[in-house]
Each structure stands twice: as structure tokens, then as C-alpha cells.
Design a binder for these strands. Structure first.
Length: 480
RNA sequence: CGGGGCGUGGCUCAGCCUGGUAGAGCACCGCGUUUGGGACGCGGGGGUCGUGGGUUCAAAUCCCUCCGCCCCGACCA
């Protein structure tokens, strides 16, 4: 009998999400620290896989890792006008240390453009120093009013890339390269989450940026989640922090800078894209453990025989499959089946006395939950079969998510249609409105423009709000 | 910041209305039997009832203070 530990999605999507986080043992509320979470081993293991894949891509595109201080002089935050307005309300400050009040208080970094800008201004002298391509993995803090595990917490973990370039074109190329080659590639290929790549509107862009690009994903309730952002900061921060270089003509110029980040929020995206009422579902290429093996036996003799068989069939797995043998002796197989299902391990193998005799194993695939996803297969050729199965599951998860998004997306031609469509998913619409129009729509529908997709239609259409003809199409949705 | 809810073994909660020796389920420990979809029996350990004050012969229970957490809305990766 399964225990009712997870609220079905259809009953309460929000509660389902919280149940998954708890039951899959990803994280728990920190309780004693407002708005923060403790990321537990299963959750952090997933983040480490994300870090590994992202870090490879960040380095492959020419960046190196560095580490800046956690604390930033408060005065730094005040230097870029839009940036102050955007972040001042949500920074935590350190006003006292070493038993004394600080004459110049610090803020705990909400993001590091300012302190990095300060150092870049000292490091960059010549065009020969450019481009400067750095990234840092760290935690940041933003005093959020309402928090949810992974999606929005006061402290979160992320990477923030910060680069400086000689020209606007180079900065723009960098911003887009990160969006495509690092973020979209990782999220789609490894997380199996389809994304829309686009540009943020003025209202939604990063405080202090010239332009913000983003990737947007659709969750199972039809709402949008921003999965990553890449900002072309123009010369705004370079002016605020005097980041200048001398060019080939001996003229002093301001640099063009970029910043870009993805965070542990991706874990939230992962959950809300693939998981089901039985628990977490991990795409094979991201799963820290791809195959878990549950031995089944009634007595010590059987145990020995079964474990020997497992030893033999996993003999050529090193380097091909990430696996784990669950030989805990105090738990029944049934308990383990459910536990690994909750934790989202893509494939479970069961090896018992019958399999030892028949040279078979039971294979259960997580993307088809319960007994339906279970079949008995021969031990011969198992490794190849599993590698192929994982591959098939990876592709299948992506396709399933993409199909879902398409079913929940529609092009709308009137404001009434838009209102209806955002109730259930993405509304594609021609748009020629202002930031104020955007605000009014948000008030009335709770939906915002998620992005102006990079791929635009070739024929003009009529703006869904103003009625004016325009070439520009945008995506409206309610967002997390 | 507004609105609501809750603080009692590790967890979920009952007990409070109507004051009188602190309970249950789960988890944990020991032993035995079990083990192919969340095992069972027997035994056992563990709680200054969020904090401070008040009322009372007597407070988890009644009154007040403070603190914390969770949930729902407007802002945000």
C-alpha cells in the first residue's frame, strides 16, 4: 500500500511541489534562518551535477573562475542609479563587527556587479587586457518577502559571470554566446527542459542593464519560469565604476560589460517540468545516480549469490553508467523501490534469486512510474540496453515537455483571448504597447511579458492591446 | 508590508473550551520472525508543553507581553 505522502498535482500544485522537495530529500526550510533553506545531500548532488555541466561550458567558452568577497561596501551599491533602485530594498546589511559599529557598513552581496566593477577598474588599463572573462560560483542573499524552496529563497547559490569588452559588438556577442552555448544548451540537453530564448522588455530587464536576454521555461501548471539571464550592461557599470581602457589610438574609453547567471532555482525548474505524483523524475544525463540496484534475498546464502551476480553484471559499468547498489539490510525491497522512485533515479534494477537462476534482471524505468514501467530482461547485453534506455528516456522527457508546452501555448489576437490564454499557459501576441500598458495588463491578468523571442515572425500583425500594426511578437504568461 | 494560521518527545498532531500525575501515530533502540511494491510481534528510551510575566492551593490549559515559523496577496533569479 503506497503511503499518501505526496499531494497529487491536480489537487494542489503548490503543495505537490513542497511535498516533492521534502520527500525526495532535496532541501528543508532552515527554520531558524528566515527565508533560507538547508540543501540536503540529494539536492546538493543535483546542483553539483548542474555545476559540473555548466562549468565545463563556461570554461569551453573561454572563462576562468575567480572569487570575490561576500561583503560589499554599502556605498558601492549606490553608485549605479537603476541598480540601487532595484536592489536596495532587498539587501541585508552588516553594521556591526568586532564588537563595534562599522563607520562604513557592508551589504551581503545580492549580486556582485558593483564590487567586481571596482576591481575591474583597477585591473584594466589597456585594450590588451580585454576581454576580461571571469565567472564566480557563490551564494548571494536577497531579503525576499515571500520565499519558496529553490524558486525564491533569501540565500541562494548560483554562478555569476562578469566580463569586460572593448566594443559594444563584442559585449553583445558575449551576452548571446552565453545564452545559447552555455544556458540554453545545458538546460535543453542536460536538464531536458525546452526553453524560449528572448529579450526582456524595459520593464523586466535587470536593474542597470542595457539589455537582458533570458531563457524561459513552462512549468506543468502552465506558468513561466525564468531559467537563466544574460545581460549586456552597456557602459552603465563601466561609467559608475570607472572601468576604462586605453585603445590603440591612445584614447581612454569606457569598457562594455556583461553579467549572466543561473541559480539553484534550476532545481525548481527541474522539479516542475518532469516530476510526477510519485516523486521526483531526473533526466538521465543530470542524475547523480542513473541506475540503482536493489538486491532481493531471503537468507545469507541467497544474499551472497545475488550480490555476486550484481558484481558480475556491473563489471563493465565504470565510466559508462553512474550506479549504486542499495545493499542496506534493514529495509525491505518494497520500501527501497518507493524511496528511489521518490528520489527520481532514472532506472532501478532488481536482482533476486529468480534472476540468478534465469540470468535475468528486472528493469524499472522512472518515466513510467509503478509496476507498468517494470520488465524482466536477460543479463546478456544489459549494459548496452541500459545505455540505450537512458538515452531514450532523456529524449523522451524533452519531447514530452516540449509537447506539453506547445499544447499550452497559443497565439492570441485580442486582449480577451490573451486574458483567457494566460489562465492556462503561454500567450504569443503581437505587441506594440508601452511599459505602462504592460503594467496595466499585469494588474488585470497577473501575466507579464516573459520575453520578446529571438525568433520573430516575418509578417506584421496587430498589437493585442493597442491595435497598432507591428512586426514584434512577445510571449505573455504568469510567472514564478 | 497587509491578511490568516500555528508553536506540546525527532516528525505529524490530540489534550486547552470545562485548570488537578503529559498522550497517540510515525520515527528511533533491542530481540525474534520477515524480505520480488512502503513488513510484523514483543520489549524499551525520549518532552523544563516557544519566551517572560500575571491569576490560582494548583497552569500545556485562563489573562497579558514578546519571539519564532508556516500559508495567502503586491515586488523579485
Amino acid at each position: 500500500m503506497p503511503k499518501d505522502v505526496i499531494t497529487p498535482r491536480a489537487t494542489d500544485y503548490n503543495q505537490w511541489y513542497l511535498d516533492i522537495v521534502r520527500e525526495a530529500d532535496l532541501a528543508e526550510p532552515a527554520e531558524v534562518v528566515r527565508g533560507c533553506i538547508v540543501v540536503k545531500a540529494t539536492g546538493w548532488g543535483i546542483w553539483e551535477m548542474m555545476q559540473r555541466e555548466l562549468d565545463q561550458r563556461i570554461k569551453a567558452t573561454g572563462h576562468a573562475n575567480v572569487q570575490f568577497p561576500l561583503l560589499i561596501p554599502r556605498s558601492f551599491i549606490m553608485k549605479e542609479a537603476e541598480h540601487v533602485e532595484g536592489f536596495a530594498p532587498e539587501v541585508a546589511e552588516v553594521t556591526r563587527a568586532g564588537g563595534e559599529d562599522l563607520s562604513d557598513p557592508y551589504v551581503i552581496r545580492p549580486t556582485s556587479e558593483t564590487i567586481i566593477g571596482y576591481f575591474y577598474s583597477r585591473w584594466i588599463r589597456s585594450y590588451r587586457d580585454l576581454p576580461l572573462l571571469y565567472n564566480q560560483w557563490c551564494n548571494v542573499m536577497r531579503w525576499e518577502m515571500r520565499t519558496r524552496p529553490f524558486l525564491r529563497t533569501s540565500e541562494f547559490w548560483w554562478q555569476e559571470g562578469h566580463t569586460a569588452h572593448a566594443t559594444e559588438a563584442e559585449a553583445e556577442a558575449e551576452t548571446l554566446k552565453i545564452l545559447h552555448e552555455v544556458y540554453a544548451d545545458f538546460v535543453e540537453q542536460i536538464m531536458a527542459v525546452p526553453v524560449i530564448r528572448g529579450l526582456k522588455t524595459e520593464k523586466e530587464k535587470f536593474p542597470g542593464a542595457l539589455r537582458s536576454y533570458c531563457i524561459e521555461a513552462m512549468m506543468q501548471d502552465g506558468r513561466a519560469l525564468q531559467a537563466g539571464t544574460s545581460h549586456n550592461l552597456g557602459q552603465n557599470f563601466a561609467r559608475a565604476f570607472d572601468i576604462t581602457y586605453t585603445d590603440q589610438n591612445n584614447t581612454v574609453q569606457h569598457c562594455w560589460t556583461t553579467s549572466w547567471g543561473v541559480s539553484t532555482r534550476l532545481i525548481g525548474a527541474l522539479i516542475m517540468t518532469h516530476s510526477d505524483d510519485e516523486g521526483l523524475v531526473l533526466p538521465p544525463r543530470l542524475a547523480p545516480t542513473q541506475v540503482v540496484i536493489v538486491p532481493i534475498y531471503k537468507n545469507p546464502e541467497e544474499r551472497t549469490r545475488v550480490l555476486e551476480t550484481i558484481e558480475r553484471i556491473t563489471g563493465d559499468w565504470q565510466g559508462r553508467l553512474r550506479f549504486k547498489v542499495d545493499d542496506r539490510d534493514n529495509l525491505t525491497p518494497g520500501f527501497k523501490f518507493n524511496e528511489w522512485e521518490l528520489k527520481g533515479v532514472p532506472v532501478r534494477l532488481e536482482v533476486g534469486p529468480k534472476d540468478v537462476e534465469k540470468n535475468s534482471v528486472a528493469v524499472a524505468r522512472r518515466d513510467v512510474p509503478g509496476r507498468e514501467g517494470k520488465s524482466f530482461v536477460p543479463q546478456a547485453g544489459l549494459t548496452e540496453r541500459l545505455v540505450a534506455l537512458l538515452d531514450e528516456m532523456q529524449t523522451g522527457l524533452f519531447r514530452r515537455a516540449l509537447t506539453f508546452r506547445e499544447q499550452r501555448s497559443a497565439t492570441v489576437r485580442s486582449y480577451d483571448e490573451l486574458k483567457q490564454q494566460v489562465e492556462q499557459g503561454f500567450a504569443w501576441a503581437y505587441w506594440d504597447g508601452s511599459a505602462d500598458d504592460e503594467r496595466r495588463i499585469q494588474e488585470e491578468t497577473r501575466a507579464t511579458i516573459r520575453c520578446i523571442p529571438l525568433e520573430q515572425p516575418e509578417t506584421p500583425g496587430v498589437c493585442v492591446y493597442t491595435g497598432r500594426e507591428t512586426m514584434r511578437q512577445v510571449v505573455f504568461a504568469r510567472a514564478y
